[in-house]
Computed example of a mutant assay.
Amino acid sequence: MSEECKWLHEILEELPLIKYPFRLESLPLNGIYFFYEKGEIWGHGGEKLRLVRIGTHKGNNFRNRIAEHFLINEKKMDFGRNNPKPSDRSIFRKNIGRALLNKNKDPYLKVWEIDFTPRTNRDKYSHLRDIEKEKSIEKQITEILRKNFFFRFIIIEDEKERIGSKGLESKLIGTVSKCTICKPSMNWLGNYSPKKEIRTSGLWIIQHLNAEGITEEDMPVIEKLIRKTKTWVKNR
């Protein structure tokens, strides 16, 4: 998959690289996003940033997913024992928090793993929570994401075409995860993840790592999507 990975990185560079702060209104309603991380360089020569996460969403929910990752609505930091923390609504944030806690050998990782979105979990485990500690971790995650992460996107309106084991998202993830050349740096925070899949893949992802990568037949489809996205961005 190394040649396909190289091709994917290069063709995505035709699209704008979005950095915080940005306007949610400048983003589409449906699509696939591609995250890069400061200090993480691809392995195909030169100093290009490597892809560290690829993701999508259900419904017309693209903007909301990005907003949850970057915590655009900072009122969500005003949570208590009976509310989910922001990272319960963003697995991206959750994974960064896992790595931060594991790096510090912090036993609070066991509580961090609990998803407090379901009422049953809040009723059963809320007494274990240290809300001030969670808010401190969430603040660190937000700072890391806003400072170190950038993204691009392609527009795909049809949910079946982008999501699930047969969607384009899984093929894109498989392409990057199976590349034998793109590797994380020694300083990558993900090296401290308690999730083996993240440490070994060099990606902030657990799903679709073993998926079939893109093929020659997929390349014209991706090129067409990129042309469509470039036109959409130009006309905004």
Rank of each mutant, 00 (worst) to 15 (best):
V111A: 08
W112I: 02
W112R: 01
W112L: 02
W112V: 10
E113D: 13
I114G: 06
I114T: 14
D115V: 04
F116L: 13
F116V: 14
T117L: 08
P118E: 05
P118H: 08
R119K: 14
N121A: 02
N121P: 02
D123E: 10
K124W: 00
Y125L: 14
S126C: 10
S126N: 14
H127E: 14
R129M: 12
D130A: 08
I131H: 10
E134I: 12
E134S: 04
K139F: 08
Q140H: 10
Q140N: 14
Q140G: 01
T142P: 03
T142S: 15
E143R: 12
I144P: 03
I144Y: 07
I144H: 01
L145C: 06
N148Q: 15
F149Q: 13
F151V: 07
R152Q: 09
F153R: 11
I154R: 07
I155C: 06
I155R: 15
I156A: 00
I156P: 00
K166Q: 07
G167I: 13
L168Y: 04
L168T: 07
K171S: 02
L172I: 11
I173S: 03
G174C: 06
K178D: 09
T180L: 09
T180M: 04
T180Q: 06
I181N: 07
M186T: 08
M186I: 12
N187I: 10
N187S: 15
N187A: 09
W188S: 13
Y192E: 06
Y192N: 15
S193H: 05
K196V: 07
K196A: 09
T200K: 04
G202F: 05
L203H: 00
I205Q: 12
H208V: 06
L209S: 07
A211W: 00
